[in-house]
Amino acid sequence: MADVAEATERTPVSTIEKPQDIPAEWQPNVLAFACHYCAFAAADLAGVMRLSYPPNVKIIRLPCTGKLDHIHVLRAFERGIDGVFVAG
């Protein structure tokens, strides 16, 4: 059945950020899409080995990065993610 995909978030003009200087301590928010069978397993192994990575990287596990669609990346940007990392 056809349905309208309504924008889950709407950005009112008042909340749009004005361009500003980047503070020295600023870190980009990075979203990582990782394949369950390789990249996510590698991240898991890194955890087991007690290796650390910056906290501004968030991981989303996918059954396969072949599942990743353009819209997932675009939605991430729409919601304020600064960079998307796809590993698989």
Binding site: A5, A7, H70, I71, L74, E78
Partner: peptide, 11 residues
């Protein structure tokens, strides 16, 4: 979907 997302970001 992609075009709608791009238009939202442009807006």
């Amino acid at each position: 979907e992609i075009l709608a997302s791009m238009l939202r970001m442009k807006a």
